Amino acid sequence: MRKIGIIGIGHVGVTIAYTLVTKGIADELILIDKNEKKVISEQLDLQDAQARLDTSTIIKIQDYSELKDVDILFLTAGKIDAAKETGNRWAEFEYTKAMIKEVAPKIKASGFNGVLIDTTNPCDAITQYLQKSADLTITQVMGTGTFLDTARMQRVVSEQFGTNSKNVTGYTLGEHGDSQFVAWSGVRVNNHPLDEFAKQQGKALNYDELEEKIRKAGLAVYQGKGYTSFGIATCAVKLAQAVFSDAQFECPVSCYNKEFDTYIGQPAVIGKNGVEFVNEIKLTDKEKAKFKNSAETIKEKFETM
């Protein structure tokens, strides 16, 4: 019995719920939101869909006690309007900080002891606060972090060279926010180092321009539809599937960094226990400095919580 909980049934939460139900990933799904009318409507809509699906999911709502034996819990609550104009994820901080201080004790009181995946912004600081206040281990708690930003990097680079984004590898690291950066030294296209591939294609690289496109990719989506949902929900579900299947899947997530004593986007291996281990990679001195700066940015905000 694969049992999953979602706290926050907004654009991201409901997209995750829809994906879990239509793909048959969840046998039992718990939906929780402060807007009970919306939760009821989403429950009914998902139940209506099941008559046309090959799988069935039991859907329950508004009961924190059900989280006791949940395998995976998603926290997806947020206030997108706060960040929509600027694209700055810290604009949501005051709202999400208050929300987490209300929700975390309820998670702890439920007896939840599974794997928690956070998408709430500012992702790194909120994820660390959840880990500490819900009294869970650093293995059990991760944020989607720069997993989405790495996907955006793959898209932007693939468009530059006319290849499939799946053929672009590498990482966007650091904060899921303005201080994030691409570790260009490790980016490869069709298994060739990026610089080498660009020369083969006879194309010039403007790293600053590429990085600006990646950093502002979320804002571009916000400005068109008022929120983001598909990309981040897909990342969250991918992590859940890695936990269920003990995939030992290597990807960048927001998880605890011992050196800087903070949650931050970095490569890790995801399996049945959550974050199995952090996968340290080689960075240039310049990239190390950017990573340190990003860690300090996150810590500064986290300390205000």
Rank of each mutant, 00 (worst) to 15 (best):
K3A: 03
A240L: 11
P193V: 01
N279C: 08
K68Y: 01
R2I: 08
G145I: 09
N113T: 01
T22I: 05
G13Y: 02
F277R: 13
G271E: 07
H176E: 09
A104M: 03
K132S: 15
I32A: 00
K258P: 13
D54H: 11
L130Y: 04
S56W: 15
G143V: 09
I117L: 08
E211Q: 09
N293D: 14
K288S: 07
V70I: 02
A151K: 14
A217K: 06
K34S: 09
T139F: 00
K282T: 13
N121T: 14
S165Y: 15
Y263W: 03
A125D: 03
T228F: 13
D81A: 11
Q62N: 07
S179F: 12
G143D: 03
D261E: 14
L148N: 13
T169L: 09
A134E: 06
P267H: 11
D246K: 11
S158N: 07
F93P: 05
K166T: 14
T169M: 04
E300H: 15
A240N: 09
D261M: 04
I214A: 01
I58Y: 14
Q62T: 00
I117C: 06
E36R: 12
Q131T: 10
L31S: 01
S185G: 10
A98W: 06
G8P: 05
T297K: 15
D135V: 09
L130R: 01
Q248D: 15
P193G: 00
D33V: 00
Q248Y: 13
N88P: 07
T284Y: 00
N167M: 00
T96Q: 02
A109E: 12
K108D: 12
K301E: 13
D63A: 07
S133C: 00
N191D: 13
I100K: 08
T163W: 02
L219E: 10
E250M: 14
E300F: 15
S65L: 02
V278K: 06
N164L: 11
D149T: 15
V21G: 08
K97L: 08
V275Y: 03
D27W: 11
D261Q: 14
G224R: 13
L116C: 07
G111F: 01
Y227C: 02
L194W: 05
Q160L: 07
Q47L: 12
T146R: 10
Y64W: 03
T234D: 14
E296H: 10
Y256G: 05
V278W: 07
L20G: 01
I25S: 03
V243D: 06
